[in-house]
Design a protein around this nucleic acid. Structure first.
Lengths: 156, 156
DNA sequence: CGTGAAATCCCACCGTA
DNA sequence: TACGGTGGGATTTCACG
């Protein structure tokens, strides 16, 4: 599933990963092409669904959202998996939901306001379909947090 | 550290969290104000550093980046913490680095191409300053992955 | 695929309420 | 804070190499 991306496409994507609101004329300057060419390439990149979306990321502490936690969830019977995932997805404080190898069948990343709201959320998770037990790790400090993936010229 | 955000600001931020490239005229339409008013508000929101940044998020599978993993790292002596964190931050495949409560002192989220590159990365992590041992959980499926935080009108 | 040029659209800046 | 008007910049469209 490797795409036909040349160095110019890679450069555009790299810049957009760092600055999602980069103007087309600035991108054109970076890659050394005209503005219409950049627009054309951006359209194609989006049509290929290479770009999941453009998002503003807010600073959680500025909104008094002080707690980040990672939660292992053991969902008892695989027949509950789908229902559990649906319930977890609908929870706004659940930022990520994965199924994983190892101890616990599912893994959540959550963000919440304080210990009180954390307790409420944990209770809620524990009553979700099939949940047998949970184990939480609370974040003390965050040193890096990004979704930027490293891009290099494809060797096709 | 609660800010003076009214419902209009919240609506703007909500939309920008979902569509980071939303135009000011579209935002104006959503909140029922004129374009200059929205611009004014956006400027103030950015001046208050409520917005960490705007980012394009790429679809990792489209770039053959098939493995996501969460790694607990036990850094032996707290005197190594700073050096370990620096080393981890510089690794492009390390998307997140936190210090946490519970087993293991640090926690990483990583994305890499395949099992081979995962092995390389794990070896590298194990040689970082102070690293005593690691425990990995590989992601099988991802059902939700966002950095959108739930916003509601502040009760100030 | 690439471009320059024209039409259109968006936005920063102003004066004003 | 809010607004409308306006000039300049950004984006889209298009004819063409």
């Amino acid at each position: 599933m490797t795409h036909q991306l040349d160095g110019t496409d890679i450069k555009i994507l790299r810049e957009l990963q760092r600055n999602g609101r980069a103007r087309r004329n600035k991108l054109a300057e970076i890659v050394g092409l005209s503005v219409p060419s950049v627009s054309e390439r951006m359209k194609k990149l989006e049509e290929k669904n290479l770009i999941d979306g453009y998002y503003a990321v807010l600073d959680p502490r500025s909104f008094d959202i002080d707690i980040t936690a990672f939660i292992f969830v053991q969902v008892d019977n695989s027949s509950f998996y789908a229902d559990f995932v649906e319930a977890a997805k609908e929870e706004a404080e659940v930022l990520e939901c994965h199924s994983i190898t190892g101890d616990g069948s599912h893994f959540l990343k959550i963000r919440t306001r304080n210990t009180e709201s954390l307790e409420r959320l944990l209770s809620k998770i524990q009553t979700m379909p099939g949940v047998k037990k949970t184990r939480s790790n609370i974040v003390l400090s965050t040193f890096k947090e990004t979704r930027e993936i490293p891009l290099q010229e494809e060797v096709s």
